[in-house]
Design a protein around this nucleic acid. Sequence first.
DNA 1: ATAAGTTTTTAGTCTTATCTAAAAATAAAA
DNA 2: TTTTATTTTTAGATAAGACTAAAAACTTAT
Lengths: 218, 218
Amino acid sequence: MITFSEENYLKAIYHHSKDYPNGVSTNAIAKSMCTKASSVTDMLKKLSEKKLVNYKKYQGVLLTKQGEKKAVNLIRRHRLWEVFLLEKLNFTWDEVHEVAEELEHIKSEKLINELDRLLDFPKKDPHGDPIPDKDGNFTKDIKVLLSTLNEKETGICVGVNDTSTDFLKYLNKQNIAIGKHITVVEKEVFDGSILIKIEDNQFYISHQIAKNLFLQLQ
Amino acid sequence: MITFSEENYLKAIYHHSKDYPNGVSTNAIAKSMCTKASSVTDMLKKLSEKKLVNYKKYQGVLLTKQGEKKAVNLIRRHRLWEVFLLEKLNFTWDEVHEVAEELEHIKSEKLINELDRLLDFPKKDPHGDPIPDKDGNFTKDIKVLLSTLNEKETGICVGVNDTSTDFLKYLNKQNIAIGKHITVVEKEVFDGSILIKIEDNQFYISHQIAKNLFLQLQ
DNA sequence: ATAAGTTTTTAGTCTTATCTAAAAATAAAA
DNA sequence: TTTTATTTTTAGATAAGACTAAAAACTTAT
Ligand SMILES: [Mn+2]
Ligand SMILES: [Mn+2]
Ligand SMILES: [Mn+2]
Ligand SMILES: [Mn+2]
């Protein structure tokens, strides 16, 4: 039996391993989970015992095949619940994450596969992230940060890099959402802010915003 | 913050207090929760600290107003999830309880009130038990055990006293379900078994079965 | 009323998941 | 290549929840 805590660690390691493919550091995990490095070390030993991670002292950690399978399945559950909350229970996209953090740990395969069916096998969650199918397969399409676009380029908003409530609420207010076409009109060199155009509206966004928005190039 | 474990104890005390209105015994709680009396004592002290129960050593325990409110809300959540699993996710009535035991602990008022709406504000769960509304109100209708009926009497099946998988599977097999009309044809004095009639089928059920089926008299 | 039996509580231990503080290993600078 | 700084691990403590064994309190029965 795997505990809530173990599952959360596997998920965090999975996400970090995209950026650090030859070993995720103890500190990185601690920071993203709002815990202490010593707690992480303890957990890594336990996960290693259970053959869910490959871990050697001071060398960083990576998921085993088995660990990755569990992490991907957890992400599947999380994202399906997010879709459910948005589509069926009238939650907004900035509200879904918090509750999905709890729901994702419910242990029932039938539950999650039936939920998948109820939602008509969605491919993306409310933040534009792909939902793995029951075998763990999912397509990750090419997306780039808005901050990397040049002037005159256009893309479709496909996801966010930051899913914090504050950020999502800001996007709601500015009418920025998944599926919207965004054109870079002008880039301000001084502070990195960008003048963008969405549906005939032009306004400035800060660099901080631009580097948390994913676009698919046209 | 209330923990999963604390919630489970409150629920157990709530259910027992119907039978022991002047104090639920430590042993009764231990037995129904498959734990030990000493563990129960520890928890009663903690719940007492939190003003969720009135507890004095050796005197049994009862819920405070506040504790009862929490227990009833937990039961609301449990039963709404059971309806959801049956109606939306194709679970059978013998499968719903186990998963609902986990789902009931998810903490979000919006979640549960929206779920209530999605299900069209159901009044009964799959086992015939009443679902409290968001203010904790529910009607408990008069129901009697099949074992207490006399020969020739008829009633509508409205609930079960035992929700174990084994029992519910037996009922499925015998085509006994909520809403069915059941007539007592003959009562066998020797072993307490009863010959019943459901939709033109007659067959014997044991006394053990009869004392776990609730009927509403016609 | 006393003894025997039952229930409940206490005392002490274990596991899981945290934390702080200090030691050890690694990485960066001088 | 030493010294310094940073990262990581160990050691020891704490809190929640559960357990066993034994003591204490209540109930029955003689
Ligand atoms: Mn999320
Ligand atoms: Mn998401
Ligand atoms: Mn149930
Ligand atoms: Mn039920």
